[in-house]
């Protein structure tokens, strides 16, 4: 039996696992963005919060992912809950960092003009700051999305579904084909994710920056 016939025979399971994987990744990214962007915005308004929040995010980033999963089992049990939690935690840092960078990179005079012509703080944020920072924020989301694909693979260790399951059980049973059946789609998914988010990034880049 060669790899191709193995893949063909198990196509149904591989596709199911692929979709589970994609689902977990996207869900985690959406949650991470929903937490990370507002947090980044908050930090950009309160300078004092920048150090503690970034500090915590950095420390969390430094914990090995397997160890973090280990800590999570007693707290959240096994399955998708600790999986999503872990991926979200690791995705936060790039998103927060890029949100803060994007917001602080906006020309101070442009912001002063926005205030000076009579926009409220909320309007300055939604009409000027966020649109101008969006490309940088999306670049952070893209980094997170790509790394998340890899992280979701690891979550098979806590019983989450996805391509990791194929790899994990392949390793246990010394089935090379099964390992590859998980690893190859995972790689392709990571590349696809990168492509997808680079398109989103282009889409949200204000037209004025595009020509360069």
């Amino acid at each position: 039996m060669n790899l191709l016939t193995f893949l063909a025979q198990n196509a149904g399971e591989i596709v199911t696992r692929l979709f589970q994987h994609l689902q977990l990744t996207l869900l985690s990214i959406v949650i991470a963005a929903a937490i990370g962007v507002p947090l980044g915005v908050l930090i950009s308004y309160r300078r004092g919060m920048k150090k503690p929040v970034m500090g915590v995010a950095n420390v969390v980033q430094a914990i090995p992912s397997i160890a973090l999963l280990g800590f999570l089992i007693p707290l959240l049990g096994i399955g998708e809950k600790p999986a999503i939690f872990m991926v979200v935690v690791y995705s936060l840092l790039p998103i927060i960092k890029n949100t803060v960078t994007g917001l602080s990179g906006i020309n101070a005079e442009t912001l002063e003009a926005a205030k000076g012509i009579g926009m409220t703080r909320i309007q300055v944020l939604t009409k000027v700051k966020l649109p101008l920072a969006l490309p940088v924020i999306m670049a952070g989301v893209r980094i997170s999305a790509v790394t998340s694909v890899g992280l979701v693979t690891l979550t098979a260790f806590v019983g989450a579904n996805g391509l990791g399951y194929l790899i994990y059980s392949g390793i246990r049973t010394l089935n090379e084909f099964q390992i590859l059946a998980g690893a190859i789609p995972a790689c392709l998914l990571a590349l696809l994710m990168d492509l997808l988010f680079s398109l989103v990034e282009k889409l949200v880049t204000p037209a004025c920056f595009k020509q360069s």
Partner: peptide, 20 residues
């Protein structure tokens, strides 16, 4: 202050326009 500014024109150097 919002009302005050909206009833007052404000012009600075080119950077005052919103690039997006």
């Amino acid at each position: 202050e919002i009302e005050l500014r909206r009833n007052m024109g404000y012009v600075i150097q080119q950077t005052g326009l919103f690039p997006h």
